[in-house]
Simulated scan of single mutants.
Amino acid sequence: MPLYSEQQGSNENPTLVFLHGFLGNRKDWQTTIDQLKDSFHCVTIDLPGHGRSVATTASITNGFENCHKLIAFTLEQLNIQAYSLIGYSLGGRIALDYARSQNDPRLQHLILESSHIGLDNETDKTNRYQFDLAWAERFATQSVEESLYQWYEQAIFDDLNYERKDFIIEQRSHNYGVPLASMLLSTSLAHQVCASTFLAETKLPITYFYGQKDIKFKQLAESIPATDTLNFHCFNGLGHNTHQHAPVNYANNIKKIFI
């Protein structure tokens, strides 16, 4: 089966395909899409274990490859001939690995938001898998609410105040723990192929978005050498999730790329 997807805007306009982050779903992009759908054909996809794709699982050992096949099949079912791929966090990692490995001639531009490009040594990969395994055990054995409160205590979310965290947790509480645990392990950063060589050599236009307050990904972005086809944009005053905190600004930057 294809992954669950929704389309907004005329398919006669350029197509933008959106991939959400861990714990999210297609609805995370709605406020941004409201600014774009008059000029673009916007496609949102629920990743395995999330939203209406909750019953779809990715292989623990070949999770990225499974996700790529599911995404490609979904786009084929929608008869999309050319598109740009936009991914946030986990969705960005999947999008980057898709671009690196699939050589899809339909893919015209890649936009990554707060996304890791992959680890380049075995020690870091081993440590990361143990980190993800511990979180997977929490999601699989605790209530979703308890796991979410622990998840958003991580340093990467320090820019969020308590009120904002409570709002996000309420939004995310519809998730199911076991599918989340499965997806967390299937697409662990430990399994992601480091894309530094791809980024240095590809002719595919790529834009990397990150927030000024997101120290981890600000440093990561600054460590990646710019090329003729790789550009960076920093959202001043924002943290890890720029598209939800400033959707109009985010949409305007997408328009600047394509219009």
Rank of each mutant, 00 (worst) to 15 (best):
H243S: 08
E12P: 00
G24P: 05
P105Y: 05
Q171I: 13
V178K: 14
S5G: 09
A200P: 05
F258T: 07
H20W: 06
D120A: 08
R138L: 11
L112N: 01
M1G: 15
R172T: 06
P225W: 02
E6I: 13
A99E: 06
S223E: 01
K37S: 10
S84A: 15
T44Q: 11
V193Y: 07
I86K: 07
K203G: 10
D158V: 11
S147V: 00
L78C: 05
L220E: 02
N252W: 07
N66R: 10
E65A: 15
S186A: 14
N252H: 13
E137D: 13
G21I: 04
N249A: 15
A55G: 11
T57R: 13
L75N: 07
S188E: 04
V17E: 06
L47C: 03
F167M: 14
I117Q: 03
L160Q: 08
P247V: 07
S182H: 11
D97C: 07
I224K: 00
T15P: 02
Y83D: 09
D34S: 10
S196L: 11
F258E: 06
N79Y: 09
H243K: 06
E12F: 08
Q35K: 12
N11R: 12
L107M: 05
F64D: 04
S59L: 03
G211E: 03
K37D: 08
I206P: 05
T61L: 13
S39Y: 08
V54N: 11
T32K: 02
N161T: 07
A226V: 11
P225H: 03
G51I: 02
L204F: 00
F131I: 05
A134W: 03
K37A: 09
A251R: 03
D46N: 02
Q7T: 15
K165A: 00
R172D: 10
N121W: 03
R93V: 08
N252K: 12
W29D: 03
D132T: 01
F139K: 00
N66S: 14
T229W: 01
A251M: 04
R52S: 13
Q154P: 08
